[in-house]
């Protein structure tokens, strides 16, 4: 694995400067059922294609931010520090916009 990531604070760096936080998982709002809790704790979509994920500038400003990355090609489409008030809302990204507009998935 080798690619560049754009830290929203510091700029473009080698991926080895960053820590990976995994795909974005939304924490349940209310007490979840057993199935929902297990799905949240243990199951991941493991997307082949563009996924939203957490990264952390480990060897830099140590800021957590979100990225959209194609897991097949490692192409990074977008990064941003989330400006959200609760975990269910997500920042607007190119992929999210395309999805909302009913467009095709970016690959």
């Amino acid at each position: 694995m080798s690619f560049l990531l754009n830290c929203p604070i510091c700029g473009t760096r080698e991926v080895t400067d960053f820590g990976f936080g995994g795909e974005i998982v939304v924490r349940p709002q209310d007490r979840p059922g057993e199935r929902e809790l297990n799905a949240y704790n243990y199951f991941r979509a493991n997307t082949d294609g563009v996924q939203r994920e957490w990264w952390w500038h480990r060897a830099g400003c140590r800021t957590w931010f979100q990225a959209e990355r194609n897991t097949s090609t490692n192409e990074v489409l977008w990064t941003a520090v989330p400006e959200i008030t609760d975990a269910t809302q997500a920042p607007v990204s190119p992929v999210a916009q395309a999805r909302a507009a009913g467009g095709e998935e970016l690959r």
Binding site: R27, W56, R62, T63, W64, P82, I84, T85, A87
Partner: peptide, 13 residues
């Protein structure tokens, strides 16, 4: 722990 704290802070603001 620092990573854990700051991660949740990024999500919760």
């Amino acid at each position: 722990v620092e990573r854990w704290f700051t991660w949740w802070l990024a999500a919760w603001e």
